[in-house]
Design a protein around this nucleic acid. Structure first.
Lengths: 225, 225
DNA sequence: ATGTGTGAACTATTTCACAGCC
DNA sequence: GGCTGTGAAATAGTTCACACAT
């Protein structure tokens, strides 16, 4: 089921490993920094340091995209930067709708890192009548009733859920029904979606809890014995 | 190297896999929901569904903590909930300092999901004089100059960095020097830290870019041919 | 009967180490 | 000489399938 047989030798590179995909944005950002500084060439060692990974991993990751480096020399910064952008789809515009305009939703609406990477927030939606109509980040907050309309008019394929956990599944279903095929979920609840829809979850409390686990182990070293 | 021979029958369980640790908070939250509903027993199938993972994985994960279930019956909700909390260190209090009181920092300061899991925000710090002195989430925002003081007085071992990328490394070094040993980094920059300090990174733009990658592939299906 | 706990098989990811090209 | 690209080895994580306890 849904096991699409991996092309072991396509021309550019079919089936980039998920772990690699998750690091491409990091490389892209590191390269943006080098572009800004006017650096022309970079070695895997330097780029790896800038991105916070080890060089072997970087080279293996890049090898999945093709041979964009020159042996004995390194990578041309501009060229690699563009190739990764293209691979990630950053050369096109993505319309995003944010549902839930609480503190987090506002932070997201104002976040400059989106706009500079081809993500355009085309809609802000909330249930709370006290916040509908308000101007946030240059957009007027719309009523949740108009969710479908906002998604369709904006042509959004990506939805961001920044609502309480209890509303997340319902909102998600309406987003998907309206045409959204990728969801970024900040609500602390698992989402069920049909095949073909991608969900990524960001859970702030989970991150702290993972840190707490390791933190606890550190103290335990002195205690055991 | 570092292959500490697995205790096949130690009392609790040494060396829980990182992937398992990252899911324990999710199980813990699902169990919290069941506790609230007054559910007494739960099977791995039910709990797995509530947590959004598959049952085999759930059972394997739990087996790393010990044998907390009953064959043919399932898991006692309260007991498992407590055991996971203990394993994660949620039975103790963790003092957290947040650096950077922009939109995101504010969202974090107000986030109820922390307090309910033993995370106490004991300090808010920012460079901007226009925001120092302001009351946010029941705390007075302190000047960045007083960072070390705030960490020490609050006894914080966890620091949250919600500053721009350019200040992140500097803030991180000061946090660590003041006694912080775990860092949650929202700034889009890799952090270099000494051994013994844990860093987790949450990068909102990265998440969207990963979605964009898959989104692009979806459209490509119809285009290729 | 039922559903956990777990070896064993499988899949994914990371790291090594070096051949090959500049 | 130096640095990329990559097979091969090592490690980590997931899923299967069934023995075993209740």
């Amino acid at each position: 089921m849904s096991r699409t047989s991996r092309q072991p030798s396509g021309t550019p590179a079919r089936g980039i490993p998920e772990a690699t995909v998750a690091r491409l944005p990091v490389y892209h950002r590191a390269l943006s920094g080098l572009v800004d500084k006017g650096v022309r060439m970079v070695s895997s060692d330097e780029l790896a340091r800038a991105a916070g990974v080890n060089p072997a991993k970087l080279r293996k990751d890049l090898s999945h995209l093709g041979s964009y480096g020159t042996r004995g020399v390194g990578y041309e910064v501009d060229y690699l930067h563009y190739q990764i952008a293209r691979e990630l789809g950053l050369t096109q515009d993505w319309a995003v709708v944010i549902v839930g305009v609480g503190n987090l939703g506002r932070a997201l609406a104002h976040y400059g890192g989106f706009a500079s990477r081809g993500f355009r927030v085309v809609g802000l939606v909330d249930v709370d009548p006290g916040c509908v109509g308000e101007q946030v980040g240059g957009l007027t907050v719309q009523s949740l009733d108009r969710l479908e309309e906002v998604v369709r008019q904006g042509g959004a394929s990506i939805g961001v859920i920044a609502t309480p956990a209890s509303s997340a599944q319902g909102v998600c279903e309406r987003l998907v029904a309206a045409g959204v095929t990728s969801v970024l979920n900040f609500a602390p609840a698992p989402l069920a979606v049909p095949d073909g829809v991608d969900v990524r979850r960001v859970d702030l409390a989970v991150e702290l809890q993972i840190l707490a686990f390791h933190e606890q182990r550190k103290s335990a070293v002195g205690v055991a014995g």
